[in-house]
């Protein structure tokens, strides 16, 4: 006990998806960034560290090969976590791994926790990532470790050896009590992460990043699903920006358009 682990993913940035050849998508052309809600996870982990004490690790798994091409994006994503209060980053990068196979990702995360001898009180992840968007990694990690799991959490209270959380579901909010160690996935609403300050960024560049390979963890590169084809969803929109000499004229123009589109009679 005494460790906190936050799971962060250097995810493909959906805002920078562009077609190169027709509507086919080449994943190697999409830059990575720290997945949005992982920022909330890091912020919450830093807050819990100030309550629980202990050392705060972040674990990132990069299976997108060739990992060497991704090194810069990956370092930036991890450094953002370090700047926000993580003590040490553990990066697993291996060219032999299959892109995004979550069976493998979960095995690697659990393998890293075990082989580094981490004894987490709480493992924090985001409710879902911006590229895969499945929210399955925290649940997988919890059942592999045999830890209790609370998902979609928007509030965490800690008191002697347990947490009391609010799970934010579609129609209800559930208040749940769980003993530690536990796995928690957090929603975007749990906090309002501020970008790191320059001083925090500078300090982060001195913090350790440990890089590991699959062979260091005794994890086999399994492959449970395969991508046959990736296509960009094309949005056909007119993209007209109404230019007018005044806001009043722009409003007139918009009303004319709505009339000609048959919306205003």
């Amino acid at each position: 006990m005494g460790d906190l682990v936050v799971l962060v993913k250097a995810a493909l940035n959906p805002e920078l998806v562009r077609s190169s050849d027709g509507d086919r998508l080449d994943l190697d052309s999409v830059p990575l960034k720290l997945s949005d809600i992982d920022r909330n996870a890091v912020e919450e982990a830093a807050r819990l560290k100030s309550i629980l004490g202990g050392k705060l690790y972040s674990i990132t798994v990069l299976t997108w090969g060739p990992a060497s091409l991704r090194e810069k994006d990956l370092r930036l994503a991890v450094q953002e976590a370090l700047a926000k209060g993580v003590d040490e980053a553990i990066v697993v990068a291996d060219d032999s791994a299959v892109p995004g196979d979550q069976v493998l990702t979960a095995n690697i995360i659990v393998g890293a926790i075990k082989s580094l001898g981490l004894k987490p009180d709480i493992i924090i992840a985001a409710e879902e990532s911006i590229d895969e968007g499945t929210g399955q990694i925290p649940g997988r990690v919890a059942s592999k470790l045999g830890f209790p799991y609370v998902s979609f959490v928007r509030k965490i209270d800690v008191s002697d050896g347990k947490i009391i959380v609010e799970r934010d579901l579609e129609e209800v909010v559930e208040v749940v009590e769980a003993p530690l160690p536990a796995v928690v996935s957090v929603t975007q609403e749990i906090n309002d992460p501020r970008p790191p300050t320059l001083i925090q960024i500078r300090r982060a560049s001195k913090k350790p990043i440990r890089t590991l390979k699959l062979s260091d963890l005794n994890v086999e590169p399994v492959r449970k699903r395969a991508i046959r084809e990736l296509r960009i969803i094309k949005e056909e929109r007119k993209g007209v920006v109404i230019e007018a000499e005044s806001v009043d004229k722009a409003a007139d123009r918009l009303l004319e358009i709505l009339e000609s589109e048959g919306i205003l009679k």
Partner: peptide, 23 residues
């Protein structure tokens, strides 16, 4: 793909190393 089934099935996927896809 609602929240509670996603929670429950991600645990099952982890226990048995099954592939899981959403959306």
């Amino acid at each position: 793909s609602t929240k509670n089934p996603r929670d429950v099935l991600s645990r099952l996927a982890g226990l048995l190393d099954l592939p899981l896809a959403t959306n």
